[in-house]
Amino acid sequence: MIKAFIITHGNFGKELVAVAENILESPIDIECISFDWQEDGNKSYAKIENHLKKYHDKDIIIFTDMFGGSPTNICFKFHSKNIEILTGINLPGLLKFLTYKDKKIGLKALVKEIKKGAIDGINIIGEYLGDKKA
């Protein structure tokens, strides 16, 4: 079983999970950790470490909101053989995770699938309609 966290600025992660729960009409087992804008980096690190400790025997995916942001930068330190971090999570990416997590394809392959789902979910409607009209 893979454990997932969403670590973001503000309540972005919690809102994302709430929307996904509404779409799938079932509760989602993902822990969301919010970064307080004023929070000290060491305190944030300790907070994440405490959450991760509980799942030391599991594969873990950490979703963050944006590459280069503080939540992501702090998570770099947790990367390991069984902890992968995917930045820039969006709704299609999260839905891909939720519908793929039980497929037993392994952590690395799963993260690649989620990344693909997240990217494929970004479209320019003008181009989409252009293709359809052509």
């Binding site: 299609p92 839905l95 891909k96 519908t99 789902g117 494929d120 979910g121 989409y128 359809k132």
Partner: peptide, 18 residues
């Protein structure tokens, strides 16, 4: 749907049909 064919077991696949 029109000229698109997607796996009905894939949520994101279905959504691409719009």
């Amino acid at each position: 749907y029109h000229e698109d064919r997607v796996n009905a077991k894939s949520l994101l696949g279905i959504l691409t049909l719009a």
